[in-house]
């Protein structure tokens, strides 16, 4: 029996209805503490750590967009470790595997990292949203505005996407929906100028958090990346230590290109965190592991739908678990 089947069996038991409901969302809170246990149980269910096992593991991770090099590295390390320790006993194997699996998302540091947003206590917080086209920047701003507002914060939005048809109206619509004001210029105007106005307005109105939308741009467009760097400089100039967060929005459906997005956007704007959207679909967004590994940028928020409430803090345990969940159900 293959590794997958065994794993699947494990989860299709009574546990499945409760925990592997297929929805990452439910998984988010429920699977947290038992993740390591599950890996352990799982590993205990196969007898041999053979080639087939490693192949299965490789496929699971690749199909979750974790990325070939990250996966190869992991598998290699696993194989080496198993050899090095001359492991025969299954209980020892499970030790190694759970160690490594946890390592791929946590790195070497053990503790959970702080993924909360850097919101200032008594002064204006500016958050800049960046990313390629259609990933969910505007939508995330709407959702985050709602969340912050319900925490009692005074929120203001700035329509920095002056390029895409209907982008200003879209943000404006979100503003209405959530009940916060939107600073906007007309289509085609200079994005840096709108952001500047946004900051001025935020200061004079004593706003707590200013959320700045920008136009989507592919990272290989040098001019557009320069434009974005300029927007950031305007913010820096107006407020010391701002922007307090630069959030790169990534679509979970994206494959290996997301790594290139993260690299280039980080260079241009010093990205402080990632919002991983569209995790309500069947894509797993595994590429954020490579991004975390290579660039050290943490995922802070996840988008789980188009509704105003579909935004959650990132849960690394649940996320890694989610990488495997669907396959368990398919088998």
């Amino acid at each position: 029996m293959s590794f997958l089947k065994k794993w699947k069996e494990k989860f299709t038991s009574k546990e499945k209805q409760e925990e592997v409901s297929g929805k990452y969302k439910e998984g988010l809170s429920k699977t947290r503490k038992s993740f390591s246990e599950k890996i352990n149980d799982l590993v205990a269910r196969y007898r041999k750590v053979d080639e087939e096992f490693f192949e299965d593991l490789e496929e699971i991770l690749i199909s979750a967009d974790v990325g070939v090099s990250t996966v190869m590295e992991l598998i290699e390390e696993l194989e080496m470790e198993v050899k090095r320790r001359n492991i025969k006993d299954t209980s020892e194997v499970k030790q190694v595997i759970s160690e490594k699996l946890v390592e791929i998302y946590q790195g070497d540091d053990d503790g959970d990292e702080n993924i909360s947003l850097n919101i200032q206590a008594d002064e204006l917080t500016v958050i800049l949203f960046v990313g390629v086209n259609g990933v969910g920047k505007t939508t995330t701003i709407g959702k985050l505005a709602h969340q912050l507002k319900s925490e009692g914060k005074e929120v203001l939005l700035t329509a920095g996407d002056t390029f895409r048809a209907g982008a200003i109206e879209q943000l404006n619509e979100w503003g209405k929906r959530v009940g916060v004001d939107v600073i906007k210029h007309s289509e085609g105007s200079d994005p840096a100028a709108v952001i500047y106005d946004g900051i001025r307005a935020a200061k004079s109105r004593n706003v707590d958090v200013l959320l700045c939308d920008t136009a989507g741009r592919l990272q290989n467009k040098v001019n557009l990346m320069n434009e974005l760097a300029k927007v950031k400089r305007v913010i820096e100039r107006e407020i010391p230590n701002a922007p307090h967060e630069v959030l790169l929005v990534l679509d979970a459906t994206t494959g290996q290109n997301a790594l290139s997005q993260a690299k280039t956007f980080a260079q241009a704007t010093d990205v402080s965190g990632i919002v991983l959207t569209k995790l309500d679909g069947t894509a797993k967004g595994g590429i954020v592991l490579a991004i975390r590994n290579e660039l050290g940028i943490p995922v802070k928020l996840v988008g789980l739908g188009e509704k105003v409430t579909d935004l959650e803090p990132f849960d690394a345990h649940a996320f890694v678990y989610g990488l495997f969940a669907d396959i368990l159900e398919e088998e």
Partner: peptide, 12 residues
């Protein structure tokens, strides 16, 4: 379809 789509493209 977005050309940057990863492994999920087959499912979609």
């Amino acid at each position: 379809v977005d050309s940057m789509t990863g492994q999920d493209a087959v499912n979609v």
